[in-house]
Design a protein around this nucleic acid. Structure first.
Length: 506
RNA sequence: GCUCCCAUCGUCUAGCCUGGUCAGGACGCCAGGUUUUCAUCCUGGUAACAGGGGUUCAAAUCCCCUUGGGAGUACCA
C-alpha cells in the first residue's frame, strides 16, 4: 500500500438510473475515503455516446445526495483534476493511445465490426469463441500484418480503425485484490481489447486507466463484474509504466429469489424498489419505484446497504454514518454475493423510525393528515405519533394506526362486535359515561383511576368494559392505551363516541 | 464452451488466516409471557458448515477433486 493521500472514485456510466448495487459501491468508496481522510471523486464515464440517457447523470447525482454520499470532486463540484466527465476529457485520451502504439504495446486494427461479427458467429457454430489474440491476430487486418506504408495509405484514405492492446504472449499476470487476495491468469486466455474506438473515443478500459492515473486514484473499489478485466487493466498500467492503484472487487448483489445479479426488473416484479429514487424512463415513460418515494429513510437505507456484504465483526447492526465510517474496513467485506432481503430493509426502517423524535415524525406525518382532510395542531400530532410509532415501519402507515385520534369511527369491526359487544354492554357504558363525564382534569391517569374505581365498586369485568369501550372509541380492537386515547381526543369527543356507539350497537 | 470468482440456518452473516467452544448473532417464522384490545416488548424454539477424498490425535477451519452458483467473454460500461 502506498502512503499517498487516499483518493477513490465512483465512476458510473449515465446509461440509466443507479441501482442499489451501484449505491453500495459508492457507499463503500465513501466510507473508505472518509475513514482515511481521503477524497471521494465522482467521475462520469460516458465514452459510449450511443448509450446516453437524458437525465441519468442528474439522477445519479441527486440520488447519491439523498443518500448523504458527498463528493469532494465531481461534475458539479469541480476540483484540481477535472473535468470529471469523460466526454469532456475526450481530447486527452488519443495521445495515450498513440503512446501505446509507439511503444509497441498496441496496434491499429482495420477489421470492420461486420467482419468480426462474422468471425464470432462462425466460431460459435463450431462451439468455440472467437478471440482476437496471438492465435488469430496474425490473420486479421491490422498493422501487425502490414507494411508501414500500407498503414499510412489506409490512414490517408480515412479508413476507420481501432487501436487494440497487444496482449503479451505466454506469460502470467499476477494481480492482487484487497478482498480476494492473489489472482493469476495466463495471457493466452486474454484478448486484444479495443482501447480506442473508430469514433474517436476511448473505450472504458483506456479511459479508466488514464483517468485513474491522472486523477491520482489510490484505491479502485468497484463491482465484481470488473474482475475479469482486471488483468487487462494491470497490463495497461505496466505498459504505461505507471504505478497501479490498489484494487478491491465487491461481491455482487443478487436477486432475492433464484439466482443472478439483481436487475432493474426484479424490483417491481417482487414488490420492492431497486432504485434509491423513483425513475421515469425518458423514452418509454416507464416508472420504477424508489426507496425515497416508498417511505424509506435515507439513513436506514444506507445502514441496510452497508451491512449487505460487509459486517463489523460485532453484533452491532444499527450504525450512524459516522459509526460506519469509523468501523468500515475492506478486510471485512465478504467474498460471496449477497441476496438482497426486502424484509430486513423494512426492519431497519422501523428501527430508525422508532429512534426519530416525535417532533420530526409529526412533521413528516402532517402531509398525510392534510391529505385526509384532518386539521390538527402539531403538538397533538406529536403526542399521537409518540403513542403509535412503535407499531409501524413507515411514516405513511401511521395513519392506519392513529386515524381514530382524528376521526370518529364510522363503522365497527364486525368480528369485534361479535366478540366484545354483549347485551349488557350498552347499559354498562351508559353508566361509565357518567363516570367519565365527572373526570377533571381530563388526563390519562385520572381517567384510568376513575374507570378502575367504578369497575371495582360495581364488580364489573375490566376486560368486558374496556374492550367494549375500545370498540366504541376506536371502531376496532386495536390502538394504544385507552386512557391516552381519551385524554387526547378530549372529554367531549369521548362522550360523543360512546353515545353514538350505543345508539348504533344497542 | 472458455477464463476468473465464490460456497455456514430460508435470508444477511460471525467463526476460517493463527485447526480443538452443544457452530454465535440478526431478519423471518413458530410458541409462551406481559397487556383492558392490537401492536410493541421480553423469553424460548425452528433452522446451516454442498458432497467426496486426503493431512491430523482432532477439520466449518488446511489441501485436492466433484457438484452447485455467479461474473466476464462488444468499436458497453
Amino acid at each position: 500500500m502506498t502512503n499517498k493521500p487516499v483518493r477513490v472514485r465512483f465512476a458510473p456510466s449515465p446509461t440509466g438510473p443507479l441501482h442499489i448495487g451501484g449505491v453500495r459501491t459508492a457507499l463503500y468508496n465513501y466510507l473508505f475515503a472518509k475513514q482515511h481522510g481521503g477524497k471521494m471523486i465522482l467521475r462520469i464515464e460516458d465514452t459510449d455516446q450511443t448509450r446516453f440517457v437524458p437525465g441519468a447523470e442528474q439522477y445519479i447525482i441527486d440520488s447519491l445526495a439523498w443518500c448523504g454520499i458527498q463528493f469532494d470532486e465531481s461534475v458539479v463540484n469541480d476540483g484540481p483534476f477535472g473535468p470529471y466527465r469523460q466526454s469532456d476529457r475526450k481530447s486527452l485520451y488519443e495521445q495515450y493511445s498513440d503512446e501505446l502504439v509507439a511503444s509497441g504495446n498496441a496496434y491499429l486494427a482495420f477489421d470492420t465490426a461486420e467482419e468480426l461479427d462474422a468471425l464470432r458467429k462462425a466460431a460459435e457454430q463450431e462451439k468455440k469463441t472467437f478471440i482476437y489474440n496471438a492465435e488469430t491476430r496474425k490473420s486479421l487486418r491490422n498493422s501487425l500484418n502490414m507494411s508501414k506504408q500500407e498503414v499510412i495509405d489506409r490512414l490517408k484514405d480515412n479508413e476507420p480503425y481501432v487501436v487494440r492492446f497487444l496482449i503479451p504472449e505466454a506469460s502470467e499476470v499476477v494481480m492482487n485484490d484487497l478482498i480476494r487476495g492473489q489472482i493469476s491468469v495466463r495471457t493466452e486466455t486474454l484478448d486484444d481489447k479495443v482501447l480506442f474506438k473508430s469514433d474517436g473515443m476511448p473505450t472504458y478500459h483506456l479511459a479508466n486507466i488514464v483517468d485513474d492515473h491522472l486523477m491520482e486514484i489510490t484505491h479502485v473499489i468497484r463491482g465484481e463484474e470488473w474482475l475479469p478485466s482486471l488483468p487487462l487493466h494491470v497490463l495497461l498500467y505496466e505498459a504505461f509504466s505507471w504505478e497501479k492503484p490498489e484494487f478491491a472487487h465487491l461481491p455482487l448483489l443478487l436477486k432475492p429469489d433464484g439466482n443472478g445479479k439483481l436487475s432493474k426488473r426484479d424490483g417491481d416484479r417482487l414488490g420492492f424498489p431497486v432504485f434509491p429514487m423513483e425513475w421515469v424512463d425518458p423514452k418509454s415513460g416507464e416508472k420504477s419505484s424508489g426507496y425515497r418515494e416508498s417511505g424509506y429513510f435515507a439513513d436506514a437505507f444506507i445502514n441496510m446497504l452497508a451491512l449487505l456484504g460487509w459486517n463489523p465483526g460485532t453484533d452491532q447492526e444499527i450504525f450512524t454514518i459516522d459509526e460506519l465510517i469509523a468501523a468500515f474496513s475492506l478486510e471485512r467485506v465478504g467474498k460471496s454475493g449477497a441476496k438482497f432481503d426486502p424484509e430486513k430493509t423494512k426492519w431497519f426502517n422501523h428501527q430508525y423510525l422508532v429512534q426519530k423524535s416525535d417532533v420530526v415524525l409529526a412533521e413528516q406525518f402532517m402531509p398525510f393528515l392534510q391529505e385526509k382532510g384532518v386539521e390538527v395542531n402539531p403538538s397533538q400530532v406529536e403526542k399521537v405519533v409518540g403513542l403509535v410509532k412503535e407499531r409501524v415501519q413507515f411514516v405513511k402507515e401511521l395513519w392506519e394506526e392513529s386515524y381514530f385520534f382524528f376521526v370518529a369511527p364510522s363503522s365497527y369491526d364486525e368480528q369485534v362486535v361479535k366478540k366484545r359487544w354483549k347485551e349488557n354492554s350498552g347499559a354498562q357504558l351508559t353508566d361509565l359515561a357518567q363516570v367519565i363525564q365527572a373526570v377533571d382534569p381530563f388526563e390519562s391517569a385520572a381517567i384510568d383511576e376513575a374507570i378502575k374505581n367504578h369497575i371495582t365498586a360495581n364488580e364489573l369485568s375490566m376486560g368486558a368494559v374496556m374492550n367494549a369501550l375500545r370498540l366504541l372509541l376506536v371502531g376496532a380492537a386495536k390502538g394504544p392505551h385507552l386512557g391516552d386515547i381519551m385524554a387526547i381526543i378530549g372529554k367531549e369527543e369521548t362522550l360523543k363516541r360512546i353515545e353514538n356507539g350505543i345508539k348504533i350497537l344497542g
